[in-house]
Design a binder for these strands. Structure first.
Lengths: 293, 293
DNA sequence: AGCATCTGTTTCGATAAACAAAACGCCCTG
DNA sequence: CAGGGCGTTTTGTTTATCGAAACAGATGCT
């Protein structure tokens, strides 16, 4: 008989609660096959709390006090204190002059190597396209059943689409997601679709599996994917997949619908296609392997 | 009024130790010398293991199997399994096709905001100087008693100085470290020096506190710091501090001594100084956060 | 001043996690 | 087929960790 948590078992109980977690980006914990019941089987509270703590600090624009942290993660103050003490020792968090906590320098360089290489190569192109179009330009990769924005060049305009680097959006309602999904094996797409609920985010959101699969066909035919107000009411977005890399990734430009019309899309898509070609080909540099000296 | 933080203890150094590698930046917290019990007082084993696990994965150039991990961290296999399972659920690690573990995408965007801004602004300059000089160019920040390489533009030449982004070197034997230390309040320098052991890394390493303090005077006088084979036998390095930012940071160019002579240094230092000036001033772009008030 | 109240720190019985050891199925290789 | 790797799962026992509550040091309020 597995014990239940006395404090209740809402999905947001342990994870810091920002409203966006309702989006159900969560997929099955994965290790090969895991039913919802097994989901908590190997869960380790300590590990989960460390993760929550770091996430909460990441999302906070300014440093947090011990009390703020312990309240937002729902752990005893003393425990949070010990956790933070240890994290500080290892430089995962640091404290400002007032003793408040923020992320430390321990994370520098901490990401998968393939991704880092892709990011480094894509960054200048994103900025170039941002400057050419004046609109926000993104690099996204598949992360579970969602797409994660790993690099963003933001539009300078006051009315603009904002993507937060490190944040995620669902696959089924974003241009990035469609562009990526269109390049995946059919079996994998089916798996992903099983795990997500095609909730309408706007009136335009695709909410049926069949329609989504048909959309992917269209994406493959025309070579680019469009999100026409399917994720954000007044946003339009076009994306092109990056092939030839081990990561399922794509580039996109997103802008307010009012100034980014369907007529504008093909030209931008073509430009993104060029760049995806550059990123797909051979590395311009040759330092893929061993980073250790 | 030194600090507003109530007199508390700081968790001092103690990096994760894989049985094999001893990357000691320093072994300051000698369990014998400074209150052995205090050092372990609030240490949380779970947290420490999470950190070690992530660090081990970060340092490994290729994915690791469960057994490799549990052996290098010295924890029970079943425990490592549970940890990794939870970390995977939260996307801090992911598994490749063979089931081996590597860092996941959960870290994207996870670093302190100030640093991220500085990195973004410095990156193009680093690449420019790298192209101008043909030598490895670095951005380093103070991290505890060491300097951490947070951004690196590597020389394309086959014989070159290699810095690994995210790695650390001691303050007292690097140009970056000296440039940074020279800008710190004397009291803070004294504190740092108490915590480190000035071990000779080469025949040129400064090993006395007095000489180091005199060196900092020289750095302040001439406006740049030099490491003349003090960290690596055949490496020479020049660095200039970045002022006007909240982070203690510096830029450097490092190269093999054979082709980077003491005569070359002033010109490179001047160039670095220009760039440090650009980075020091007002942000060229927009500030997205209200972090600064 | 006095009091209230907010911090971060410390303590100690209650509790959850780790340990070791083993077994499982599973894919290799010989 | 036996043998040895691996990842996954289980068990009772040992051990580290948790959490409530108390502690201490700053504020701020009247």
């Amino acid at each position: 008989m597995p014990r239940r948590r006395p404090a209740g078992r809402n999905p947001d109980e342990l994870d810091h609660e920002s409203a966006d977690e309702q989006i159900d980006i969560h997929d099955a914990p994965d290790p090969a096959t895991a039913t919802p019941e097994q989901a908590r089987k190997y869960n380790n509270r300590s590990v989960e709390r460390v993760v929550s703590m770091l996430n909460v600090l990441q999302e906070s624009p300014e440093p947090m006090s011990l009390v703020e942290i312990h309240r937002s993660i729902r752990m005893a103050k003393a425990t949070a204190f010990r956790y933070l003490w240890t994290l500080e020792k290892h430089r995962y968090v640091e404290r400002d002059g007032d003793g408040r906590y923020r992320l430390g320098l321990g994370f520098v360089g901490m990401q998968s190597r393939d991704l880092e290489v892709l990011q480094d190569r894509a960054r200048p192109w994103l900025e170039r396209v941002r400057d050419e179009t004046g609109e926000t330009t993104n690099l996204g990769v598949l992360d579970g059943t969602a797409v994660r924005y790993v690099e963003v060049a933001e539009s300078p305009r006051t009315v603009r689409m904002v993507s937060v680097r490190g944040s995620r959006d669902p696959l089924y309602c974003t241009a990035l997601g469609k562009a990526i999904a269109a390049q995946l094996p059919a079996g994998q797409v089916a798996e992903l679709l099983e795990q997500v609920d095609l909730k309408p985010r706007t009136g335009n959101t695709i909410t049926s599996t069949d329609r989504f699969l048909a959309e992917l066909d269209a994406v493959r035919r025309q070579g680019y994917a469009v999100d026409d107000g399917e994720n954000e009411e007044d946003g339009r977005c076009v994306a092109v997949a990056i092939l030839g890399t081990r990561l399922p990734a794509a580039l996109s430009v997103s802008a307010p619908s009012s100034r980014f019309t369907m007529d504008d899309i093909p030209a931008v898509a073509a430009r993104l296609g060029e760049i995806a070609g550059h990123l797909a080909g051979e590395p311009s540099g040759h330092r893929t392997d061993r980073a250790g000296g």
